[in-house]
Design a binder for these strands. Structure first.
Length: 530
DNA sequence: AATGGAACCAACCGCGCATAT
DNA sequence: TATATGCGCGGTTGGTTCCAT
């Protein structure tokens, strides 16, 4: 830390640069000096944390309370861990992000010694880097883990909360894992090459790749594969549901038809390299023909008045940078145009549930989650909202491979600037990976990818496969059992029967846990219920 | 060696929530 | 109940460093 000597020299030096230390003059901004740090440390040591606005008054520090708090929290706290993130931490961040989205503060609670700002910066830079390189964002194992977790949760919560969860579940599921969605389900379908996993293990899975790899012509799951990054998806529903052009079992237009235009780039900004056409199948058709039982989902859909991505959702950092991520390979459309796309998609669905009235924030989601929990507890047997389940509560065996292993995937050729079809071809299986090696596009007979349009609601919902299951399991539709069955059927081919099976098998409280990062459970619960 | 771009990092800003009055 | 204040969070910005050309 800083020498206490500086405490005795509060008003020197830095005060001259852009501000002053102490005094009642204008508050200083900009970088903190060692003297200021010392003052702050001394103050905190003496008075403890909190009451930050009093720091200026009592210590003479010409910094606003917020600045003091930030400085302390991010740099001066004695328990801070300095240095680069370890592979374990990196992996943990990814796991957490899968679950939480851009909830940096929450994530920080799970990473002792790390700050939200640190995590945020890490994520942003890594994502940006990978985005530029056209690399996948999430590692398949994590996706799988999340899937398992959610399935588990669904089962834990299965058919118990009924209508209650109908509305409440959605926000969390939709918001919490904006971009993860299809990835997890594709674990077994992906070509390892798709998961070019860099040091940080982020998967920037090209949507097209997802579609190709994970889709088979009949699989409705495509829908959510393409919805991985619902938020702010420029194409809105259309692109998000690129794969959902037909009813279950229906064949979708081939992805190779993707125009190599800006739409693709937009998608890329979400971490996908797919070229999503603007056109496509009408949203209506999609919303109604998504998959058998999909109505349950769409009915539970959050918004009618406002497209899902028009909401301010919890977005991964990369999503927020859509406008600034000018990849050399793929110039992105202006934010304006993106916004237009985002907000313009008309939706004919009405809000059929008690979803957050504003449909625009995590807080809402959290609130609703909380409400859901309460309701669930009150009206049902103990439930475990998917959103509150710790990742670690699930079998994390699939996560056991080390971060460095992710790197083994090697970077594929950047798909940027290529149509999805080309992307597919580029992402041919590299093989030999520890992960389930999904069949390549070529090995998926009849696989066809189609960038189609879809309702924002659909997108929202399908943004998280687990949600689909959860929805059916927990009451998005009153005919939950039916929906579940339908979804199971729908996802079975895609995620694998075993997973579907797991969904049921996991339906035991004791299944949680156990492995991996068990310590997270508590923290997670704490966070979730906070 | 110079230059430009990318990466990294620290800090600020705006918003919203919680609590006190 | 309404308002004020404190605080935390997430997004964004700007500066510095690193690296490739």
């Amino acid at each position: 830390m800083k020498s206490k000597n500086s405490l005795d020299l509060p008003n020197i030096e830095e005060g001259n640069s852009g501000g002053n230390v102490g005094g009642n003059g204008p508050l200083k901004k900009g970088p903190w000096t060692s003297a200021e740090d010392a003052i702050l440390i001394e103050y905190v040591n003496k008075h403890g944390e909190g009451n930050w606005n009093a720091v200026q008054k009592h210590s003479g520090l010409a910094r606003c309370g917020k600045s003091c708090r930030l400085r302390w929290a991010n740099h001066l706290r004695p328990d801070l861990k300095k240095g680069a993130f370890t592979p374990e931490e990196e992996r943990r961040i990814i796991e957490l992000h899968v679950k939480m989205g851009n909830k940096w503060a929450r994530m920080a609670t799970e990473l002792p010694g790390r700050t939200d700002n640190e995590i945020k910066n890490y994520w942003n830079t890594r994502i940006k880097r990978r985005q530029r390189a056209g690399l996948p964002i999430y590692p398949p194992d994590i996706c799988m883990q999340a899937l398992n977790e959610n399935q588990h949760n669904e089962n834990m919560d299965n058919f118990t909360s009924g209508d209650i969860r109908h509305s409440d579940l959605m926000p969390m599921n939709v918001f919490e894992i904006p971009q993860f969605n299809g990835i997890e389900l594709n674990r077994q379908l992906y070509s390892p090459a798709l998961f070019d996993i860099p040091a940080n293990g982020l998967l920037d899975i090209p949507a097209s790749g997802l579609l190709v790899e994970g889709l088979d012509s009949s699989c409705p799951s495509r829908s959510y594969l393409s919805t991985m990054h619902p938020s702010k998806h420029p194409q809105g529903p259309e692109s998000m549901f690129s794969g959902v052009g037909a009813t279950s079992g229906g064949i979708l237009p081939v992805g190779s038809q993707y125009p190599d235009d800006g739409s693709m780039q937009i998608v890329q900004s979400f971490g996908f390299s797919s070229a999503y056409g603007h056109d496509s199948i009408s949203n209506h058709a999609l919303s109604s023909s998504l998959i058998p039982g999909s109505h349950a989902i769409t009915n539970g859909n959050p918004s009618s008045s406002e497209p899902a991505w028009a909401m301010k959702m919890e977005l991964p950092s990369l999503q927020t940078q859509i406008g600034s991520w000018g990849s050399p390979y793929s110039p992105l459309p202006s934010l304006e145009s993106v916004d237009t796309l985002i907000q313009s998609p008309p939706t004919e669905h009405t809000q059929s549930c008690s979803f957050s009235p504003r449909n625009n924030g995590l807080l809402d989601a959290v609130l609703y989650e909380s409400q859901t929990k309460k309701k669930s507890r009150n009206s049902c047997q103990p439930t475990s909202p998917a959103s509150t389940m710790p990742v670690d509560a699930l079998d994390t065996s699939s996560l056991e491979f080390h971060e460095t292993e992710w790197e083994a995937y090697g970077d594929p050729i950047s798909p940027f600037g290529h149509s999805s079809s080309s992307v597919f071809s580029e992402y041919t299986p590299m093989s030999g990976n520890s992960l389930d090696e999904p069949p390549s596009a070529e090995t998926l007979p009849g696989f066809k990818v189609k960038e189609t349009s879809a309702d924002t609601e659909n997108q929202m919902i399908f943004s998280r496969p687990d949600f689909l299951l959860a929805s059916s399991c927990s009451g998005l539709n009153k005919d939950r059992t039916k929906d579940y069955s339908l979804l199971k059927d729908a996802f079975g081919p895609f995620i694998g029967d075993d997973l579907v099976k797991d969904c049921k098998q996991i339906d035991t409280p004791t299944s949680s846990s156990a492995q991996g990062h068990g310590h997270d459970s508590g923290a997670w619960n704490t966070m979730s219920t906070a």
